[in-house]
Design a protein around this nucleic acid. Structure first.
Lengths: 278, 278
DNA sequence: TATACTAATGACTGGTTGGTCATTTGTCAA
DNA sequence: TTGACAAATGACCAACCAGTCATTAGTATA
């Protein structure tokens, strides 16, 4: 494990327990068994660390739920699958999820806030595409409210998960929430969040389209990071495809599938899916 | 205004802007125009201050929504009135609400966490009584889920309120949420939170019944605090009634009504309503 | 073995924190 | 005017903080 990862894992644990502000760099390095100076070889500052953590997790979360929404071919199970992916992600990275819930928009760190907003907007976009697909015109008036209801459900129920150590029936939870969401979509008629209001929340451009050059750069970095041969070759071929397209869509899709579940590839896989139009 | 209140108001503003940990006692006293030493004449520590703030606001919030639920005689408007009271309270004390959302269960301060849990349980109780009244047997299976849905709605929508400075149509919001709640109550059938599960969340005894002695003590304090003659006399008569009952229920109810809206009486009024059974 | 290099250390700095307390200021009654 | 008491002050303290940097340890090449 790289020193950077070691630090991130130690910090994750302590932040989840004590919060970001209340955890000192000294505590993190003690816990990781390294010196304080070594910390600053990996991160320029404590702020850079929390941002790296946010990025690391949110990239996975975003790409996970995006994949579920884009690749489910069974509309009746889509909501269930969506909630399942979201809660599975929270459960798997429960330390991060705790930080995420605690540290929401509360820090004076400008960059962190804008990071959070950014991922929040991506989540909105994914949820919206799911609603559009499931209900289309039927939910035109209330679709923005539905986004917020879904986020509210996830918030309160993930609280139970995270802060009570009880064995939960994830299947039951997801079935329950899928029905609730469906009921709201079918029967609620009074919107609060209008298209116009929703736009004002998301004024700044979100989800900037990435260029091929940026993707090639990112792919180059990722190729260096990982060792598994299949993933490494898939990434290399995809990089080649960006420089000079020669592969058929089926092959590209297959290559994307190869890397989809590798923790270090989730984000680049998400971006590539957007780029290639899958 | 007492020194204690002055400090609390200054702190409220700064905590909302910067968070609790990031605000120093020096900043608070500078902002309040007093010396640092004077702070410690009013509060034993910085922690005691945040707890006083939580108490001050949550007592008002709890008693406000309790009053609405207990005193609405129009079932069709009850949900609307409930949301209205809740959001009005958040809007009126937006600085506090920001702190509340930010500081939720994230501090290492044990007492604060248990305070939060305590008020959370009271809120659950009030919401549950509302659901029971509106839907009774009809929502027996899903009533605990409804509590969490309602809390989820309040959470996400209050976020919009608090962190975007936009003019909101409170009426529209409450109508929208009342309908959503009603739709869920009428059509959702798959519960996640069973009675048993709900009980385990709320194991410790909540809402300890207060004794007449405690109420008399509290009334004595409150009488000292306020100056308005009507409220003062009402409190004095109610205190007398506790020591030696002599007034008719109608008169007692009227006296309670007199003090209901005074900020310093809300909590004692809530407790008295419970005690006298209104 | 000698050299050149990077990785890692932890004492240190300048600054801030929550909290204390000897001292001063203000306010009464005598 | 005096004296007694409470209210208020702010310099001060030990503890801790994020971040630095001269020094050392480890490693690979020649």
């Amino acid at each position: 494990m790289s020193k950077k990862q070691l630090i991130m894992e130690s910090a994750l644990e302590l932040f989840a327990k004590q919060g970001f502000e209340a955890t000192s760099v000294q505590q993190i390095t003690d816990h990781a068994g390294i010196s304080k100076g070594a910390f600053y070889l990996s991160f320029k500052s404590k702020d850079e660390l929390i941002i790296a953590l946010i990025d690391h997790f949110m990239m996975q979360f975003t790409s996970d739920i995006d994949w579920v929404v884009k690749n489910s071919n069974n509309d009746t199970e889509l909501l269930y699958d969506f909630y399942n992916a979201a809660f599975a992600s929270f459960q798997k990275h429960s330390d991060f999820a705790k930080i995420f819930i605690k540290e929401q928009s509360q820090t004076p760190n400008e960059e962190l806030i804008s990071k959070m907003r950014h991922y929040d907007k991506l989540t909105d976009k994914i949820i919206l595409s799911m609603i559009d697909r499931l209900y289309g015109e039927e939910a035109r008036k209330v679709k923005y409210d539905l986004i917020y209801c879904i986020k509210g459900f996830i918030h309160v129920y993930s609280h139970l998960f995270l802060f009570f150590n009880l064995p939960f029936d994830l299947d039951s939870l997801c079935r329950s929430l899928a029905q609730k969401t469906n009921v709201l979509a079918k029967h609620s008629t009074i919107p609060f969040i209008t298209e116009e209001l929703f736009q004002t929340f998301t004024t700044e451009q979100s989800y900037e389209e990435v260029t091929a050059e940026q993707l090639i750069e990112l792919l180059g970095q990722t190729i260096e990071e990982i060792e598994e041969p299949i993933e490494k070759e898939s990434l290399t071929l995809l990089k080649q495809q960006l420089i000079e397209p020669s592969l058929s869509p089926a092959i590209v899709k297959g290559l994307l599938e190869n890397i989809r579940n590798h923790p270090h590839c989730k984000w680049v896989s998400y971006l590539l899916r957007g780029y290639f139009g899958f």
